[in-house]
């Protein structure tokens, strides 16, 4: 094992006690006056480093809004977000973008790879954008982890859905972001392929110390999480530690009845 990788593992164990994202009293309101919609109201949470946090809730609960705000893609109406100690709500667009490069990784539901680039080019894209060099050892490590080494020269059109998503995971990991946001990462995949992706995500948390926040509506998907937060009507209403699908399902139903 190279020194770089062993460093990574050391960091993994060391960082298990820090806070990657610190959100305080987030509110997000759309519209004004009588027709105002309160998507989020008074949400505070800490995303611990080296853990996988799942955010669940029925549609309209504000879970996507919460993720967008924490990722710096949207500005809250009030409240603050800190990523790795930096307050992001006051940053302008360019500074925010540059911060996203270093600290935030994304995996979307629809694959969002660039169709004219090969898998390799898609994976190193964030580094290229930042003008940084690719560490060949780290690249090999990531690519091996997601099991895509044999398909690096293929274009997205030549890859299956699962393979495309794996490329997306590799792209998200390559910059070693402070936090990786995954929005319904398996929503477009069949259960077996989806399971593979989830295993990858879980593995990156365990062996690489990656911090992940995952938004999902699927109880089985949420089982890989270390912690599950439930949102209802714009607030955090329940929290569960790593648990079974049945427990999660029950919790959802309870919230739904409220």
């Amino acid at each position: 094992m190279s020194t770089k990788i062993s460093n990574q593992l050391e960091r993994a164990s060391a960082s298990r006690d820090g806070v990657a994202v610190h959100a305080t009293d987030l509110c997000r309101t759309y519209g004004e006056g009588d027709t105002a919609v309160h998507a989020l109201c008074g949400v505070s949470l800490d995303v611990p480093t080296g853990h996988l946090t799942a955010v669940m809730g029925p549609s309209g609960s504000g879970k996507s809004t919460l993720m967008h705000i924490m990722a710096g893609l949207d500005k809250p109406t009030s409240g603050a977000v800190e990523i790795d100690g930096t307050e992001i709500t006051t940053l302008d667009d360019t500074e925010l973008t540059k911060l996203r490069r270093k600290h935030v990784g994304f995996i979307f539901q629809f694959f969002n790879l660039l169709p004219m680039l090969t898998a390799r080019e898609n994976i190193v894209l964030p580094l290229q954008i930042a003008g940084e060099n690719v560490d060949p050892d780290w690249f090999d490590e990531v690519v091996t982890k997601v099991h895509i080494s044999k398909r690096l020269t293929h274009r997205p059109a030549e890859l299956s859905g699962g393979q495309q998503q794996r490329v997306a995971v590799a792209r998200a990991l390559i910059t070693r972001p402070t936090v990786l946001f995954a929005d319904e990462p398996t929503g477009n995949l069949d259960s077996r392929t989806g399971g593979e992706i989830l295993a990858l995500l879980h593995d990156s948390v365990e062996t690489l110390g990656q911090t992940i926040v995952m938004v999902t509506h699927d109880a089985r998907v949420a089982t890989i999480a270390d912690r599950v937060l439930f949102l209802g009507d714009g607030e955090i209403v329940r929290e569960l530690p790593e648990t079974t699908p049945e427990e999660i399902q029950k919790a959802i139903q309870e919230i739904g009845r409220r």
Binding site: L73, D93, T97, R100, F110, N112, L114, I129
Partner: peptide
């Protein structure tokens, strides 16, 4: 449009 959104999300600035 969506692709541009994705590129902006992963770190391309407006100027870029």
């Amino acid at each position: 449009t969506r692709e541009l959104g994705m590129l902006r999300a992963i770190g391309i600035t407006q100027r870029q």
